[in-house]
Amino acid sequence: MAVIPRTEFQRRRNRRKWLGRAFHGMCLLSVAIALGMLAVLLIYLLIQGATGINWSFLTSFASRHPDQAGIKAAILGSIYVVLVAGVVSFTLGVATALYLEEYAARSRFAKIAKINIANLAGVPSIVYGILGLQIFVHNLHLGKSVLAGGFTLALLVLPIVIVAAGEAVRAVPPSFREGSYALGATRWQVIWHIVFPLAFPGILTGVILAVSRAIGETAPLIAMGALTFVPFSPDSPLSRFTVLPIQIFNWTSRPQEGFQEAAAAGIIVLLVILLIMNAGAVILRNHFQNKWEG
């Protein structure tokens, strides 16, 4: 004897199907909104800035005349600063994550440290700028230089790198660790030969995210004292510099029409650099990831 009449099943099934479709539709709508906004932004930028992008724009320095203004110093500045930030945050972040996950995994210290690091990721970026100004510029006498800027951004993104690297390290199956310990490996050998290589793609993803964030940061570098008008290449780690977002911000605040166009062109350049970096990193990650999968 059926407790629920057949027709009741039928009705429920119809409702479930309808619900499924509605949810599908909602997801699609969200994607459409996100992509739509992006498309509008890109089209607007292209219309405004595409004409401004040419060789002399890419290879000229800042100028008071809109038609002579170029973005060379900002491109170089951004690349150098982000390189420093990437290398420093990768090194410190991986070492910290390995310590917290492999050496001190169950200690109370590690637990407290991890909570605090997660919280640091939410500190407003300008705070890091002020910190960088004090520590790197003043205390370590680095001046308002490429190095100081890179270190400041490294501090800013370090929590992201540590959290991502920690997750990647935890995702390495314990059976691989046991297998290598059982062959007489020391802790260092297990980390170096097993844990790090397997966690590397995940760590790389974290560093990419972090560096992508760093390249768009303006506030902390302004607070630290980066320049806004740089008519020279930053040719040493200690030379002064500007970066793309600062240059763009500076141009948008000028009244002349020509600078608005330069700003749009600058944003396109920034996006292209971001895209190249992300694509490169994804390729690198896939290269390491797919190698041994059965």
Binding site: S175, E178, G179, S180, A182, G184
Partner: peptide
């Protein structure tokens, strides 16, 4: 670590690297 290469171990689930 010096004991473990004198006394090897094979696990329940195969765990090749």
């Amino acid at each position: 670590t010096e004991i473990r290469y004198e006394i090897g171990m094979v696990f329940q689930r195969p765990n090749p690297f």
